[in-house]
Nucleic acid binder design. Structure first.
Lengths: 230, 230
DNA sequence: TATAAATGACTGACCAGTCAGTCAGTCAGT
DNA sequence: ACTGACTGACTGACTGGTCAGTCATTTATA
């Protein structure tokens, strides 16, 4: 043992250098008050978590990687989220909850279904399929089974409300004879191609690209084409 | 070194007792020749793997648990499968490959689509939805993204062939005016509710049960109902 | 200066994959 | 028919590596 310069040098290989660290932190680290910076950190962590979770799945994601991507030390994650699962749940909650309002609002304007269907397809493609929300839904589908709490939350706060909104619209339309009763019983049939699009996009896009807009259009044409029998 | 009874007794706290082990091994362990027993073991491991993988997902599954469930030591798994991933791929391959033939055979009998649709719904419910194959498809959906090899295999050997078979059927039906052209372009639209059924079954069944047969029936009624415009 | 925020080395648990050792079954030689 | 050497299927303790979560220490802010 050589005492050398430092008296008790048992574990001091710390601190790279203040300068190096200061220049590394991402946006939100510099901003105004504590509040603002804190919120920025939280966002950065969520964004990084989205990348990592959707690339690797829940189990295979390392919080070290999330931290690195967020420009933050691992410990910092634990200042904002209780644990890994909590971070995961919060991510899904934050991404999907806003959808509900948008869709419920759609039912308010009492349009003919054809026009409504148009809008819904557009909404789906622009706000879900072409955004990170598609990844989050893929995560929900992939991991939901092992997080019953999360599945329940998602069913209660998102799915059931979307289904209820769709039923309300469809019931009115059915009363006008615009759609068959079957759709009121199974609104899932309307959304089904959306699910196909999301799953296909994740798995087979590279082998056989799918023109989602065209498929959705074909689907609503099929459903709402005028029929001979009532 | 003492020759003694055992030559090298460096670490020998092994072997519970021959009797204990003999009475533990499951079916297939006793049977006829080496071949038969070997095949039995393989089956037992695959069955156990199905249980564990579909309950926990790929990453979270421990091979110790698979071994225990199969009534086998962990090392034995490595006599039959190269590694964990290999076991996983083999499981999916073994469960889904047989489907192709069945579905391709369906196209052979040149029935009217309505009758065919009937049969296909029945096939789906009985041979997929109500069996372990549904779990395997859920696994494929959940994990496929992180196993591109597996996704490609599945696309090439299963999906693309099923789609091709469906297209052949639909093209004939479209020529007879039984279905709209759109379905030939997007056979996915026919299968979409099947995907919904599988995903729903895994995530939300307990919160809102879904009558799959009824939904599928409603779906084919919608698609094949007689239309005013050609 | 006092307080809060952030850091990252460290710990304990966990687990895929390995391999030295064991044993049931086989069969050539008697 | 019996024996004992041989084979290879099977076992499970062990290793090496990984990673979630902690906390003593350092840095930034009020």
């Amino acid at each position: 043992m050589k005492p050398d310069k430092t008296p008790a040098a048992k574990k001091q290989p710390r601190r790279k250098s203040a300068a190096a660290r200061a220049s590394r932190a991402g946006p939100g680290a510099r901003g105004g008050g504590r509040k603002a910076r804190s919120a920025g950190r939280r966002e950065a962590i969520l964004a990084a978590a989205l990348e990592e979770f959707s690339a690797r799945g829940f189990e295979a994601t390392r919080l070290d990687d999330v931290a690195k991507r967020a420009g933050v030390a691992k410990g910092t994650i634990y200042l904002y989220f209780r644990d890994k699962e909590s971070l995961f749940q919060e991510l899904i909650r934050a991404m999907l909850t806003p959808l509900v309002g948008t869709i419920e609002a759609m039912g308010a304007a009492d349009l003919p279904v054809a026009a409504l269907a148009e809008r819904i397809v557009d909404l789906f493609v622009r706000e879900i399929f072409e955004t990170r929300r598609a990844d989050v839904i893929r995560l929900m589908i992939s991991e939901g089974r092992r997080f019953p709490k999360l599945a329940e939350f998602y069913y209660r706060e998102v799915l059931s409300r979307i289904i209820a909104a769709m039923r309300a619209i469809l019931r009115r339309a059915a009363a006008r004879g615009e759609v068959p009763q079957a759709l009121v019983d199974f609104p899932q049939l309307i959304a089904a191609p959306g699910l196909v699009a999301i799953v296909w996009g994740g798995l087979f896009e590279r082998y056989e690209p799918l023109d989602v807009r065209k498929m959705m259009r074909a689907h609503i044409d099929l459903l709402f084409a005028p029929r001979r029998a009532a």
